[in-house]
Simulated assay, not measured.
Amino acid sequence: MTTAPGLNPPGLPARAVKGVVLLACCAVVILPFITIVSTSLATREQVTRSGGMVFLPDEISFAAYQAIFNGDVVTRAILVSLMVTVVGTTLSLVSTTLLAYGLSRRGSVAHKPFLMIVLFALLFTPGIIPSYLMVKSLGLIDTYWSLILPVMINAFNVIILRAFFMELPEEVIDSARIDGAGDFAILWRIVLPLSKGVLAVVALFYAVSYWNAFFSALLYLNDISMWPLQLVLRTFVVNQTQVGVDQLGVAGADLPPQEAIQMAILVLSIIPILVVYPFVQRHFTKGVLIGAVKG
């Protein structure tokens, strides 16, 4: 019995090469993260001795995290980011689901014009100046709505959900209509329970987008007290702004090293996504392949 071409198991050299490449890729991802966490837990002497970044600390210190949570700036920024992420993700998921379901029903009112608008928005995005003028004309400057409303519906996510809804069995929906169920009843009792996987993927897409967004806050929020965590992180790390008594409320002599504070803020910005991602990771393959294979 012959084996079809291309189906032979790889030999030992090929498996060894794949293992080395996989280990190298893991090292590229894991080693910087270990360095960030280690630096946030290092003491002043260790940071000074290593020249700024510590790979493995000899002694663990939580002074940087204590300083962050004792102050108002970072703590308030974390609460702002959580609020914007939760509210924005909820509104985005609801509006995207309703729009996608309406576009998936071929008999809906103005089906094709709305679909063309969504496709146009997917291909062409507004510039910074038109977006700013629109937000300003709506009176959203220095409000948290400026971080949510302009990006509440993502055309790519609408297309993903629409493709999934169109693949649902029409027989199930038709039988529900025969039993007297309306569109909202069908959506709530039939479509949504069958779409938990793709909804989890879209919700994660939105949550990551809201959590990591900083440029919209830089444009629309002039009040520093309203800044989300990512913008505070950019100010402290990217701009190399010194984190001191005014931001943390810690005496200068007790202030942890700047590198430790900056890395601690970075760790706090990463943790929520790391916590949420494993619960929806198994849905990603399904969500990415939606609409790619018909049948």
Rank of each mutant, 00 (worst) to 15 (best):
residue 186 I to W: 04
residue 187 L to Q: 13
residue 196 K to F: 09
residue 210 Y to L: 01
residue 213 A to R: 09
residue 205 F to K: 06
residue 192 L to R: 12
residue 212 N to L: 07
residue 195 S to G: 13
residue 204 L to E: 01
residue 208 V to S: 11
residue 196 K to E: 01
residue 215 F to I: 14
residue 204 L to S: 05
residue 213 A to L: 02
residue 215 F to P: 00
residue 191 V to F: 00
residue 210 Y to N: 03
residue 185 A to V: 05
residue 196 K to T: 15
residue 201 V to S: 06
residue 198 V to T: 11
residue 213 A to P: 04
residue 199 L to N: 13
residue 191 V to P: 00
residue 195 S to N: 12
residue 207 A to I: 01
residue 202 V to R: 08
residue 187 L to A: 11
residue 202 V to C: 11
residue 211 W to A: 09
residue 195 S to W: 10
residue 191 V to N: 00
residue 198 V to F: 13
residue 193 P to K: 10
residue 205 F to G: 04
residue 188 W to H: 10
residue 214 F to C: 04
residue 197 G to M: 09
residue 203 A to H: 09
residue 186 I to H: 03
residue 188 W to A: 12
residue 189 R to H: 13
residue 197 G to L: 06
residue 189 R to M: 00
residue 190 I to T: 07
residue 204 L to Y: 14
residue 201 V to W: 08
residue 211 W to P: 08
residue 207 A to G: 06
residue 211 W to M: 10
residue 195 S to H: 11
residue 189 R to S: 09
residue 205 F to N: 12
residue 186 I to D: 03
residue 193 P to C: 03
residue 215 F to G: 02
residue 185 A to S: 12
residue 196 K to Y: 11
residue 199 L to R: 14
residue 199 L to Y: 14
residue 213 A to K: 05
residue 186 I to A: 06
residue 197 G to Y: 09
residue 193 P to M: 03
residue 194 L to V: 01
residue 188 W to K: 12
residue 192 L to K: 10
residue 202 V to D: 07
residue 190 I to R: 06
residue 215 F to Y: 15
residue 202 V to E: 07
residue 203 A to C: 06
residue 200 A to F: 00
residue 207 A to H: 05
residue 208 V to W: 08
residue 207 A to D: 03
residue 207 A to L: 05
residue 204 L to A: 05
residue 185 A to H: 05
residue 189 R to N: 08
residue 214 F to V: 02
residue 213 A to I: 00
residue 206 Y to I: 01
residue 211 W to N: 10
residue 191 V to R: 01
residue 202 V to L: 10
residue 192 L to V: 15
residue 204 L to H: 04
residue 190 I to S: 04
residue 195 S to K: 08
residue 202 V to H: 07
residue 191 V to G: 01
residue 190 I to P: 04
residue 215 F to S: 11
residue 202 V to W: 06
residue 197 G to C: 08
residue 210 Y to G: 01
residue 186 I to M: 13
residue 213 A to Y: 06
residue 201 V to M: 06
residue 209 S to W: 11
residue 202 V to Y: 06
residue 188 W to M: 09
residue 207 A to F: 05
residue 188 W to E: 04
residue 190 I to A: 03
residue 200 A to L: 14
residue 209 S to C: 02
residue 196 K to L: 14
residue 201 V to H: 08
residue 211 W to V: 10
residue 210 Y to R: 00
residue 204 L to D: 02
residue 204 L to Q: 04
residue 197 G to F: 05
residue 213 A to G: 15
residue 213 A to V: 04
residue 186 I to L: 07
residue 203 A to I: 02
residue 201 V to E: 02
residue 208 V to K: 13
residue 194 L to G: 01
residue 192 L to T: 14
residue 209 S to T: 14
residue 194 L to I: 05
residue 187 L to T: 12
residue 196 K to D: 02
residue 188 W to F: 12
residue 213 A to H: 10
residue 210 Y to T: 04
residue 214 F to E: 08
residue 202 V to S: 08
residue 205 F to S: 07
residue 188 W to Y: 14
residue 195 S to P: 13
residue 210 Y to W: 03
residue 196 K to I: 13
residue 199 L to S: 14
residue 208 V to E: 12
residue 203 A to K: 11
residue 188 W to T: 12
residue 201 V to T: 15
residue 203 A to W: 07
residue 198 V to A: 08
